[in-house]
Design a protein around this nucleic acid. Structure first.
Lengths: 165, 165
DNA sequence: ATGGTGCTTCCAACCATGGGAAGGTCAAGC
DNA sequence: GCTTGACCTTCCCATGGTTGGAAGCACCAT
């Protein structure tokens, strides 16, 4: 089976399949006479596993561990469970972080008239950090976003100008 | 004021300050005779603005727009407000995504005994799950499909290592 | 003057993904 | 046969935000 077919059947892009092979997450694929990579059902199965794990927010490093747990018939289900619970806790932390942002922004926005006058507590809050900011203590790694995901959305003129300049 | 001092006073690392200058988010800094960058209070003020905006999850591009809105005394507060509301909606979307992951994982984990036996619905869900996981409606008897040989990536407690890396 | 620290620039890495170029392979149609 | 087009190969580049490091000056205190 060619890589394209394996890609369609697994939902993992060909780019990613090659990348996973290159980084050692999956073993080197067999090759056809032509030099094309050759996949079988077991490979597709593993790729689907990977895609589902990614959909659940696991990093590639974590997926490597999950693959090992998958293939290790002697490991206890408790090992898997604690791994999952760990990840759940991480995700919840992330949610809490973003919720804090939302709360702050909503507070600021609530106090903004949103009319044609220039006074704006939102900008002032950013500029002067007056009480409205319950400071998030530590400045931790940012990327709460799913990488590669840059949703095209409607933006104000100012935003468009700034990003497309 | 040297960059190090400006960094301490603004909470933005020197690396980031140079990066922001390089990418045009902030204007090129003045220079001292020595060639060192020279900052004044207004610069620090702007850097703090940036840091707070980052803490609220705005991208650098969005911050550029916010800086414009900040310095534009004629803009209506409605402009800022819609910008903020837009961002809030975005953050909420992200929260919903992660919450969906959590829900799925919790469902899987709930069904896992978490004892020393190997049977584990979490791994099985990843291996044989129904694509979206959104509703854990189970189909199919599941059996333990092992992927092909797993090469030399033989690590005992890979799970612990992966979560701590 | 010597050492330590701060500053400069440049270059690379992280993660996951996508884009694209330059070229090889294959199966179909004429 | 030969062309076309879809597919595959490897290689390099870009993203976003940040950090790390190296090589080499500038500054300050002793």
């Amino acid at each position: 089976m060619n890589i394209g077919h394996a890609s369609k059947r697994s939902g993992v892009s060909t780019k990613m399949i090659r990348y996973y092979e290159q980084t050692g997450l999956i073993p080197k694929a067999a090759r056809q006479d032509s030099g094309y990579r050759d996949y079988d059902d077991a490979d597709v199965h593993r790729l689907r596993f990977i895609r589902r794990a990614r959909d659940l927010g696991f990093t590639v490093g974590q997926i490597g561990a999950l693959l090992e747990l998958w293939s290790d018939r002697s490991r206890a289900s408790a090992d898997v469970k604690s791994f999952a619970l760990d990840h759940i806790a991480q995700l919840k932390e992330k949610i809490a972080e973003i919720e804090a942002m939302v709360r702050t922004l909503e507070t600021l926005a609530d106090h903004c008239h949103g009319d044609d006058r220039p006074e704006c507590p939102i900008i002032e809050g950013l500029a002067d950090g007056n009480g409205t900011f319950s400071t998030p203590g530590q400045r931790e790694p940012r990327h709460f976003g799913q990488p590669g995901e840059h949703p095209a959305r409607r933006r104000s003129d100012a935003a468009r100008r700034a990003t497309h300049q």
